[in-house]
Nucleic acid binder design. Sequence first.
DNA 1: CTTCTTTTTGCAAATGATTTGCAACTGCAT
DNA 2: ATGCAGTTGCAAATCATTTGCAAAAAGAAG
Lengths: 158, 158
Amino acid sequence: MRIFATGVVIGHVGAMTDRAAPKRDYEGELKRAGIRLTRPRKVIVGILQATDDHPDALEIFRRAAAIDPSISLSTVYRTMKVLEGLGAIHRHAFEGGPSRFEGAGGEHHDHLIDLDTGDVIEFQSDKIEDLQNEIARRLGYDVVHHRLELYGRKRRKA
Amino acid sequence: MRIFATGVVIGHVGAMTDRAAPKRDYEGELKRAGIRLTRPRKVIVGILQATDDHPDALEIFRRAAAIDPSISLSTVYRTMKVLEGLGAIHRHAFEGGPSRFEGAGGEHHDHLIDLDTGDVIEFQSDKIEDLQNEIARRLGYDVVHHRLELYGRKRRKA
DNA sequence: CTTCTTTTTGCAAATGATTTGCAACTGCAT
DNA sequence: ATGCAGTTGCAAATCATTTGCAAAAAGAAG
């Protein structure tokens, strides 16, 4: 099992590996896809690159507006949709909240959401992935994608 | 691994077990909780008892309206919230759609959603549950609840 | 069965997240 | 510089769900 930690600092946890954020080249991807590199889009992808957490559209909008107040929330939503279409970012709809985004940088992983703080911790388990595929296969299906989210609280270190 | 099939008929799949829908006594639960047994609520829980799939609020409303046209959609939503609060039903927010409900009858299980038909197949894997708990523990967390959904397509039987 | 109090209901309007129509604007290939 | 398809901001629209409110009904008490 590989464990990533983003945004939150978690102590020493076994196989923990602080992910070296793979800094996506969003501008290049947009360009390559023949999509115009506009001012708003530059600002937004700049924010995504500088981010290590999982902000929602409104949060991205706030950060963008701080740089260029003329940017609109609709444009943030539109840009996220474009990037998602390119596979450059992933959208996560965690329980009871707006969608949150993250760069589609590193390897695949799932999420543990801290119910008290909203912090998101990433982890990955090949064993679980294998079991998922096996289950689907037994049911006559191929897994196109999945969603695995653990909602929990920090253990009281009694 | 235990595999349930509800709503959809799936062939012979290893350890498959057709779940004997545990017919909840919703009326008794409401009564016991000191919640009034009104006409709309009787109709709605009647629908839930007769159901083996995962209908959304609008679908429940349609079925209810067919029995008593005076029932409103708001009441369906309100009733689902009450039942959820009692732990009598579970709410599932699958990707890109409204919440779908199911009686909290049998044992815990996760879901495989057929991307082409929207059908939901239930399955359960102790092995996956164990792995989830182990991962959370390593990260210093206790799992309060989780969400595991496989989105897939029927395998072409080439 | 009538009365009384409290919970529920239906309806319409409000919410929250996200999308869309449209006219004005702007990358960027020529 | 020029031209136009791709983009933007804004306001209004959508979707699922919730809520305010006055009228209606449940169930305890007499």
